[in-house]
Design a protein around this nucleic acid. Sequence first.
DNA 1: TTGTAAGCGTTATCAT
DNA 2: ATGATAACGCTTACAA
Lengths: 348, 348
Amino acid sequence: MTEPGARKQRTTRRTSQRTTLMDVAARAGVSAITVSRFFNEPHRVGAEAAARVKAAVEALDYVPNLAAGGLASAQSRVVAMVVPNISGPIFAHTLEALSDRLAAAGYQLLLASSYFSQDNEERAVRAFLGWRPAALVLTSRHHSAATERLIEATQVPVIETWELTPRRPTLQIGFSHRQVGRDAAAHLWGRGYRQLAFVHNSAAGDLSAQERHDGFAEALRELGHRGAPVAVRPRAAAPMEAGAEALRALLARKRQRPDAVFFANDNLACGALLAAQREGWSVPGDVAVFGFGDYAFADKLLPSLSTIRPPAREIGEIAAAHVLTLVGGQQPKRLTALACEVIARESA
Amino acid sequence: MTEPGARKQRTTRRTSQRTTLMDVAARAGVSAITVSRFFNEPHRVGAEAAARVKAAVEALDYVPNLAAGGLASAQSRVVAMVVPNISGPIFAHTLEALSDRLAAAGYQLLLASSYFSQDNEERAVRAFLGWRPAALVLTSRHHSAATERLIEATQVPVIETWELTPRRPTLQIGFSHRQVGRDAAAHLWGRGYRQLAFVHNSAAGDLSAQERHDGFAEALRELGHRGAPVAVRPRAAAPMEAGAEALRALLARKRQRPDAVFFANDNLACGALLAAQREGWSVPGDVAVFGFGDYAFADKLLPSLSTIRPPAREIGEIAAAHVLTLVGGQQPKRLTALACEVIARESA
DNA sequence: TTGTAAGCGTTATCAT
DNA sequence: ATGATAACGCTTACAA
């Protein structure tokens, strides 16, 4: 054991002159902790010291290092979210609400796309957990086995959104896709359509859409629909193309030619509607079109699109509230069940 | 000075049992640094040790703490980006390309919306710099004075996209909005339209749209257009509503009723097109409609939308390449000028 | 109100 | 190939 003073010279690893709390402290003539308090607990800093710190911060254009702060305080100022597509319209309102509310509270959003692939989701979850985010927000409840294990093992709170499955350990904010399918069936049946069809998302990994289909088929069976609804999965990857392709295929059928079609989402339905317009097919005269999502264009199309509106913005708001609750040490309500709304317009 | 052995008991701050590198090391019977190497420089770990570490990692579902790693190595695995709207269609392709390429390289994307407000942008930039990202990607060159200072002072490389201004210190990947406006003018003039109008984004902060307008007006002056083009800024915040509102106002004019309208973006143009459809106005017969962006629906509308396609995906790809170049210690080309493409369809 | 010492979980450096 | 030690930049705990 050597005396502390006898320790060998510190090998400094800093090469670039990054500005740190210490630099600010030195310039302001205070200790590092005072600068730290200036940012985190300003009421605990005297007026004079605060003024000097403020001047130093501005002179140096200092921005505290959040990674270091998070490490020291075991608190992270990021929230991570995995969505099927960060730039798609489906989760736009959810993302917007979540992101804005979190930003207002000083939290930033880390985003990744899964493209409806459980492998992509797993990669994203793994990468995100490395940041020890304040929460991890997912947009599905269908995960790979490895993802499930990660979710179980991590200390990071997980919020599953846009889904509802009572028996899971995670927080959930969502609705029943099966019920959406049932509502669609009831609406179309109620309007007198008797030969129904369903158009899947071209991405086979969209299991929520599959559930909407299942609810749709189930309700139709109960209502007395003849046989299961025809279901097609288009090949085109681009959703509007896919919708157009599916409608063409359905209307070309000799048997079970549908008089109404429930599309897995509004992008598909919109593609179908525009294709019908171009081909001169009458909607809902020749065929009724029904969607899911109530995207921005739904009420503007001609005919306007009948659809089901999910509580997208609300989900984002509640997710943000949950995160802040968790950060505050409280436990939010585990299950938040929201309702979708049938929006009856001209197309069905 | 007390002897090291006489130091008071460490006050341990850890309360929850977070799994760390040390836990993995202990379980694998190696030192912490070996576990670190297992993740970062696997070739430097012996086969036996690696196998034991691997087993321990899996048994504990261990995920390395990236904040701690980044702090120690002075390298960050995040890239931050500010866009006007994270969920809008404008930057969708750029975001997608950037996010996917970065994810493939092990980098995550931190995102925030500015909503065309320089104050929002400043807040986002400040928050992002706290993470010491590998790069900060912006989508404009118009910033608040404070943002400019932050950009100047920070060590973080800044990439400005969707713009081009030779004299700035930042990396730039973009195109000339003024040229876009000129191209629109040339196209419409070439098709014989002689009474032109421009529709602004309802968000006054969209200065790029303003530049498109300026280029448009400038080129028209050169071409011999009678007076400056009529320019309107709609009130409605929702872009499709705004486009419809603007078209209605323009067609109601007694004097200078336009025969062709250049909309600041495709969302506005789409709103106008759908409104025209509903009102029974003929496009381009009664009025021609021209947009900017080439969003997904542009070629599906009836009539299909003539527009200008920006190199959105390419910008994202090049930005990602720049980030990786920077991380590798190289300096990317400072200025990347890309071209837009006029897409002549049915509406103009 | 302010400061000192120690610790957060990882990696750089140097040694073996 | 592996390890010991210090360092990264900040905050907690405790002291003054």
